[in-house]
């Protein structure tokens, strides 16, 4: 048997094992991971947040050369303030259309690959951080539990945006890679537009 064929046969059992059907064990993402990691995962459990974070991360990574400092500084600072504000109870929720509207804006910027004016970029990051932060209030628990959860959410937000920006920036060398990012932007725009319509119908 030649080398290639033997390699295929060696990996075939692994592939088949991975394809074995198994019963689904449905559970929520956050339960059982603790307060801090529950907070870290929180942005990923809200589709509107995911859409906006995707838009922000790709938008940031799309810019060549990659400059994370200024926009991330704004994002980190404002999100910390907003998460802190949730503990005061002044703002209970953020209207979903606001978050989706920001995702729409980020998606359009990514799809059009517009070179950002500094104030647009920082304004977008500030508003996004404010909206997501205020929308991430901890509904149950007191004291240390809330602090740990909010710290987790803050860490999660920063990791998600920074990672997305970093990995998106790896897809800017070739034209087809840049096109791929723009297509992703158009998907974010399209999904946001639809969700806005759903929100309008229900309002």
């Amino acid at each position: 048997m030649n080398y290639k064929a033997s390699m295929w046969l060696r990996w075939l059992p692994v592939a088949l094992l991975l394809a074995l059907p198994a019963s689904a064990s449905a559970h929520t993402v956050v339960s059982g991971v603790g307060d801090f990691f529950g907070g870290v995962l929180h942005p990923l459990t809200t589709p509107a947040h995911v859409l906006l974070l995707l838009g922000l991360g790709i938008y940031l990574g799309q810019q060549v050369p990659l400059k994370l400092k200024a926009s991330l500084f704004v994002f980190v600072t404002v999100s910390a303030l907003a998460l802190g504000l949730t503990t005061t109870g002044l703002v209970k929720t953020v209207p979903p259309p606001l978050i989706i509207g920001l995702a729409l804006l980020a998606g359009v910027l990514v799809a059009l690959e517009i070179p950002p004016a500094t104030w647009i970029s920082r304004g977008l990051f500030a508003l996004a951080a404010l909206a997501i932060g205020l929308d991430s209030a901890v509904e149950t628990g007191t004291g240390w539990v809330v602090v740990k959860t909010l710290l987790g959410t803050w860490t999660g937000l920063i990791i998600i945006v920074a990672d997305l920006a970093f990995y998106s920036s790896k897809f800017t060398k070739w034209q087809w890679q840049r096109v791929g990012l723009r297509v992703a932007g158009s998907w974010i725009t399209a999904a946001s537009l639809m969700i806005l319509a759903f929100a309008l119908r229900h309002s």
Partner: peptide, 24 residues
Amino acid sequence: VPAMWVLPVVFPVVMAFGGALGVL
């Protein structure tokens, strides 16, 4: 190129506009 990527960028956005009309 550039139609290869312009069309798949244009289509979802305009489709979503049509979708919004359908939803409303």
